[in-house]
Design a protein around this nucleic acid. Structure first.
Lengths: 301, 301
DNA sequence: CTTCACTCATAAGTTTCCGTATATCAGCTC
DNA sequence: GAGCTGATATACGGAAACTTATGAGTGAAG
């Protein structure tokens, strides 16, 4: 067992594609290669990594062995880093131009970010944006995004973080709904209404239960963990649900309920990887978003 | 500006080597390539990344531009991930064999780990170890190591962490030193002795100042942030310094001073990346180290 | 001032690697 | 069961990439 020569990084990329797609042919297609090339890459990699088989071949495709499965996260990390590298190179250093990849929750990303990015781009027309919408925000340390907007305090030291304030959550309903079903006068009244709430997300369910002890998951008439869907249900007049106050202010159609009793603060942070501090466009986007989100947060008070 | 085809990952590896070495020739040597190949790789990369120059050529070598400098951390991340991938593949899945890379402080790594790893290897002869000694422990999230032993509570959720207890720090001196200079009777006495302490590390300086307010940095007769050097100075009979109690117990030559008054607990954690939970050998090493360090910690009480 | 050691660039030769074409096997539809 | 569509494996020719060889420039040492 002599020391094998280090495998070409290119092979890792093929490995990842094969694990993803489950076949040499599909992997080759996705990479712009041909099937024999992918086959050769895997064979080479198996040889370079000590000879153990990485896949079990079959006419249906390649099934990864346990070994190959263990390699997948590392190959993913390489891919994220490669993508981040290409983004970092997408604008000349010093100029505010190029690609910025932003991770945000679905509501922020879908309802709040677009207008902000429009204004940011008006300021710097050379900027391009990639937006990743997920409620489990992409890990900046994995370089899945350059800038993340998160609702929890970031814990990693390798990050630059700025708190923009507390996004206020309120209880809202469409006037049509209230006209048809009446306006609840007390918290207990809510139990008789069509409540729109979370399905499984424990943190989400807790928001309403903390408000009124009787507002448990089983009284919800509309359950979904997708906050965009919740918002849509409120707007459609289905019932009463949670919505960011600053967001609802923009649509005077929605009526806020129990404004004094129910006001759930959600601390909000803009975060960026330390490595990106030196990049002019990342800094510009970071500062702009921190400002704009600060204004958004203040609008909700 | 058409969408460029994604650059080969192999080019990123060359990029990193060129940034590291500062010349195409040296980079090529380090990669087992030739200089024209490295040259072509960089040219290709410059073309693929939008045409901007990454280096300024000169007869002295290649100086990275700001753009290239911004890419370096991402290329480093790729390299770490690639190395972690190769390590992960170094043993058959399920078997307890292959390479485990461990990050630890200099003292733990130099004085405590060797015997533990000897015993672990006796249990599993197929294991090989890589030990990274640094007081700013390598970031597991960057995959610079598989397992880290740290003196602070890990904050990242992506890590598996286990607290093994508190390593106790005590004040020690060699009997020869005490015979020559007398044994200090009170804390104030210490000011007249040859104290071995930290140089710049604020956390280190604070350890002694918390003990006696008068034990500020300026009374240290031997200042170094290298804890191995501190230990060596204590062993050589230079003076009085801080040492892990469990470590000093092994050498009955060292005498502990103020055992009741000075006992500084340092919480100790063994940590591992979540991705590695499924690996038999990583788990085995993790569990073994947690046990062994637990025993070590208890020996210091 | 010459020489040596180091750099990068370019041209030519050789190897390696990739793509095309073909054979084979499994499953699904008709 | 024939035929279609998916898969992998293998053979072979050509293009791409790497190595070798050479030239030119810079800086330090003798």
């Amino acid at each position: 067992m002599s020391e094998a020569p280090p495998a070409s990084w290119e092979l890792f990329r093929t490995l990842l594609a094969v694990i993803r797609t489950g076949s040499l042919s599909a992997a080759a297609r996705s990479l712009g290669l041909t099937q024999p090339t992918a086959s050769r890459h895997i064979a080479e990699l198996e040889a370079a990594l000590g000879g153990g088989a990485l896949f079990t071949r079959s006419p249906q495709g390649l099934a990864p062995t346990d070994t190959a499965r263990a390699l997948a996260p590392h190959a993913l990390a390489m891919e994220s880093a490669a993508a981040a590298l290409v983004r970092a190179a997408s604008g000349a250093a010093g100029e505010i131009a190029g690609v910025v990849r932003i991770a945000a929750s679905e509501v922020i990303g879908g309802e709040v970010l677009p207008a902000m990015l429009r204004d940011l781009r008006a300021l710097h027309p050379g900027l391009k944006f990639e937006v990743v919408l997920s409620n489990q925000p992409a890990d900046l340390l994995r370089r899945d995004a350059d800038i993340a907007i998160r609702m929890v305090r970031p814990k990693q030291e390798a990050l630059v973080a700025k708190k923009v304030g507390d996004v206020l959550l309120g209880l809202f309903a469409h006037p049509d709904y209230l006209a048809a079903h009446g306006k609840p006068k007390t918290v207990e009244d809510l139990r008789r209404h069509a409540i729109i709430g979370f399905d499984r997300d424990p943190a989400g369910v807790a928001i309403l239960r903390n408000f009124g002890a009787s507002l448990t998951r089983d009284v919800f008439a509309y359950r979904t963990d997708d906050q965009v869907a919740q918002l849509a249900a409120v707007r459609a007049g289905f019932g009463i649900g949670v919505c960011q106050v600053a967001l609802a202010r923009r649509e005077p159609k929605l009526t806020r309920l129990f404004p004094k009793e129910f006001a759930f603060p959600l601390e909000t942070w803009v975060t960026m990887h330390q490595d990106l501090r030196g990049s002019a466009r990342m800094r510009a986007a970071f500062d702009f978003l921190a400002d704009a989100l600060g204004a958004y947060v203040r609008a909700g008070r």
